[in-house]
Design a binder for these strands. Structure first.
Lengths: 137, 137
DNA sequence: CTTTAAAACGTAATCATTATTATTTACAAA
DNA sequence: TTTGTAAATAATAATGATTACGTTTTAAAG
């Protein structure tokens, strides 16, 4: 997912184009990892002093709903990253910097046999640790 | 993990035996699924009117630390279940009633090859859906 | 029994998130 | 270009989960 695609989705669904939304998208476009609402707020503050929580949260949720962003819960805080659309995948997530690495292995095929009678709706597979550059520092 | 084991751990580590702790443990012993602090509070209230949050949360964390309970985050709330010690495992979790089913498949072996240079510290694999009895209702 | 360290109480604070109402703005149609 | 209107934002306030704190109570060891 890149900015043009994301802006295209917004337009197509009838949502308005605002500079704030563009800037939010550009933030996630440039970052390659999970970021919190607070991280985004800190990024936005210089350009928009006093920007409200509402704007941050509403847009994060909107983008999550539109699958422009994907989200996960890390230590009690929701974190978001730009969506890697196209194919099913999971992530390694660096505990220190939040950067992600795509994992192509999905365990669900091997598991379905164990779950006869259970209706599977969703699953979460995440690996946590330190990325190479955080190990070095 | 059963009550005797759990109480043994408490004793061995020098923590006191109280009726509240016994009741908390008996709650998780009888429930076979993830339960929230609120769930536990509701269970405790009749026997201990006005029991404080502090008692609930402190003991949940203590038991989590001692690996008497294990925890996961579901929809912004921490949930706890009695620990299935002994072997590594994952869980199917029913979104409706919180009951769990053990999954013996662990995807980590297949994944390590994809993560050269990344230091793996932890992982989470959970499957969400409806258990057979919740599907029926 | 007495001691004492831990547990529990009562309450307030904190942190993330959501809701509310009023104002402002993007955008399309006149 | 102007204007109407629905959407977006601001400025709080509220909520819900969790943690912190000073005091009192209690389990359990001597």
């Amino acid at each position: 997912m890149n900015m043009e695609e994301a802006l295209g989705i917004l337009k197509q669904k009838g949502y308005k184009y605002t500079k704030k939304r563009k800037d939010i998208l550009s933030y996630f476009d440039q970052e390659d990892g999970y970021r919190s609402a607070k991280d985004l707020l800190h990024f936005m503050e210089p350009a928009y002093p006093g920007i409200s929580f509402d704007t941050i949260y509403r847009n994060l949720h909107l983008f999550d709903e539109l699958a422009i962003l994907e989200s996960t819960e890390l230590e009690g805080e929701k974190h978001f990253r730009i969506s890697c659309v196209g194919h099913h995948h999971h992530h390694f997530i660096c505990k220190q910097c939040g950067i992600t690495k795509e994992i192509d292995t999905c365990p669900m095929d091997n598991v379905k046999g164990e779950l006869g009678g259970f209706q599977i709706e969703d699953h979460k597979f995440e690996i946590y640790g330190r990325c190479p550059s955080c190990q070095a520092s």
